[in-house]
Amino acid sequence: MNTFFLGMALFLVLNILAGLWRVLKGPKQADRMVAAQLFGTTGVASLLLLAQALESPFIRNAALLFALLTVMAVLAFVRNTSYGVVEDNNDEHL
């Protein structure tokens, strides 16, 4: 049973690694940010599965914090746009 949960966590980590392709590829900054947000949720799920697999319930608090705080990086990213400061450096790829 625990091996199953660990395997699921491993599967989710592999998902994150596959998603890294989007971070590398871009083309826009927003795409990278979307990928980061997806990693946040995948990481939460994977931490929850690890908490079950390793029988250490306090890992759930780490998952809780990730779920609570991942949105802050997005807020920081977006704030710069509303100030009109950010420019997309990769316009020519579109």
Partner: peptide
């Protein structure tokens, strides 16, 4: 945790 992830993802989606 699920609720927080829902709130976080949906608002991040709006922001982006």
């Amino acid at each position: 945790i699920w609720f927080l992830a829902l709130v976080g993802s949906s608002s991040a989606c709006y922001f982006i």
